[in-house]
């Protein structure tokens, strides 16, 4: 079995980072998570996951430029690394292959 090395929450966060692109910092990601899933999550929880993903090498980060908002404090902007992209892709491919092997759904996905 293929090791995806991504939990469900991690995968979503990783995808959100990709979606937000230049705006991917902890608060924005938590905000976007809520908007996309309807579930609330604390900034700390998101930050913790980002930190973990970065240490796994799926993300990299750098401090953005200071802006006038938020007291002039800089944001840490996260971007997906090549490895991160590959892992996301592998994860999707793996699931797709699983879907394909599902006889009831093969070809015609039938949502009840």
């Amino acid at each position: 079995m293929i090791e995806t090395r991504l939990g469900e929450f991690e995968e979503v966060i990783l995808l959100l980072v990709g979606i937000l692109d230049d705006n991917a910092y902890a608060f924005r990601i938590a905000d976007e998570f809520k908007a996309q899933t309807g579930r609330t999550v604390s900034i700390g929880a998101v930050h913790s996951t980002l930190d973990r993903l970065e240490s796994k090498g799926f993300l990299k980060s750098s401090m953005g430029n200071a802006t006038a908002e938020r007291g002039g404090r800089r944001k840490r902007i996260f971007t997906i690394t090549a490895l991160g992209k590959r892992v996301l892709k592998e994860s999707r491919d793996f699931k797709m292959s699983l879907w394909d092997q599902f006889p009831a759904f093969s070809g015609k996905i039938n949502f009840v």
């Binding site: 938020r70 007291g71 404090r73 800089r74």
Partner: peptide, 14 residues
């Protein structure tokens, strides 16, 4: 400290 405080403050004002 910097980024977290920033994030929390931004969140707070929203």
């Amino acid at each position: 400290a910097e980024e977290v405080e920033g994030d929390l403050e931004e969140n707070f004002y929203i």
